[in-house]
Design a protein around this nucleic acid. Structure first.
Length: 310
DNA sequence: ATCATTTGACCGCT
DNA sequence: AGCGGTCAAATGAT
């Protein structure tokens, strides 16, 4: 698998920074958004890498899985802090996420006004009337169900000009913890050999599983073969995007190989993960070269920011 | 029996 | 009027 190129992907582009220009598109001085975008991508890649590595480690329960989980958490925490720092130093217009928050606040105020005017008189609840058009983040991914949160499907619709149905998910803890986060998942029409999905996130997670900054472990738990049957997805179109078959046959092979390497190499002192470095590089190649553009951690960064963590 | 998913219906928005 | 988001009863899985 040395020469495997699953995706044609441009080489990393250097991000313009602090006064540089790139031809027609002029970058404002101290505009850190390109850098932020790259870090967000890095966070999503690390998140997905964690979703692959940890299940392999858990096949043999020892302290390493916990250690690796902590390391991944530390890496993501560092990235989050960098993003916060860059955002606080960015000059010029507000980041899109901040605009979203302001819009959300405005909409909330508008909703309060509506309530004061008694416009819920038809018996509809405030929640039912609220439509979601702000504070959304969309991206294309191969693994729409591995984003670090637990979701429950509550609807499915045929969408105009699309060959695939759109699935609607809400946070599993919506009722227990009043978490208002929702998302939609829709398979892209231009599906080649690999199925790509457009995932749109609405709202922010306020549930406990998100605030402990280790929520992705829930994904790890549900990704074990035994619990896959209880994962939140049952849509035949969406199903099967699990660790065993979520990307490509090649990746599935690597995932299974990781388990075998793990059992073979757990005694090597120089390999604290118990994984063959060649396998790790293969995984990194796959994830790094894939057309992934997750921005879910940017959402988390927004939550952290609004919670005063930045 | 309990919980998750499916699916038709309802309703707000454009 | 049609589209899309959500609800809730029906259904299925465990």
């Amino acid at each position: 698998m040395k020469n495997m190129s699953l995706f044609s992907y441009p080489p990393p582009q250097s991000s313009p920074c602090c006064g540089t220009t790139d031809g027609a598109k002029r970058i404002l001085p101290c505009d850190h958004r390109p850098a932020i975008e790259e870090i967000v991508k890095e966070q999503s890649l690390v998140t997905q890498l964690r979703a692959v590595v940890l299940p392999a480690l858990e096949t043999k329960a020892d302290e390493r899985a916990e250690l690796v989980a902590q390391l991944f958490g530390s890496i993501l925490d560092c990235s989050r802090k960098v993003i916060c720092a860059l955002k606080s130093h960015s000059a010029g217009e507000l980041p899109e996420a901040d605009i979203d928050i302001k819009r959300r606040v405005k909409r909330k105020n508008d909703d309060v006004e509506d309530k004061m005017k008694g416009e819920d008189a038809k018996g509809k609840t405030h929640e039912q009337k609220r439509r979601r058009h702000t504070n959304s983040k969309s991206h294309v991914t191969l693994v729409p169900h591995y984003d670090g949160h637990q979701w429950r499907k509550y609807g499915q619709k045929n969408i105009n000009n699309s060959n695939h149905q759109r699935s609607y998910y809400r946070c599993t803890y919506k009722h227990e913890q009043n978490c208002k986060a929702t998302k939609t998942v829709q398979q892209l029409d231009s599906a080649g050999e690999t199925m790509m999905y457009t995932v749109v996130y609405y709202g922010q997670h306020t549930c406990k599983s998100n605030t402990n900054h280790d929520s992705s472990l829930h994904v790890i738990e549900t990704s074990t073969p035994q619990s896959l049957s209880t994962t939140t997805c049952s849509d035949p179109g969406d199903y099967g995007q699990t660790l065993g078959n979520m990307h490509t046959p090649e990746l599935a092979g690597v995932c299974s190989d990781l388990g075998s390497h793990h059992t073979l190499e757990t005694d090597q002192d120089n390999n604290t993960l118990g994984l063959a470095y060649e396998d790790m590089h293969e995984l990194l190649d796959i994830f790094a070269c894939g057309p992934l553009d997750l921005e879910i951690w940017e959402n988390d960064a927004i939550v952290a920011g609004s919670a005063g963590l930045c």
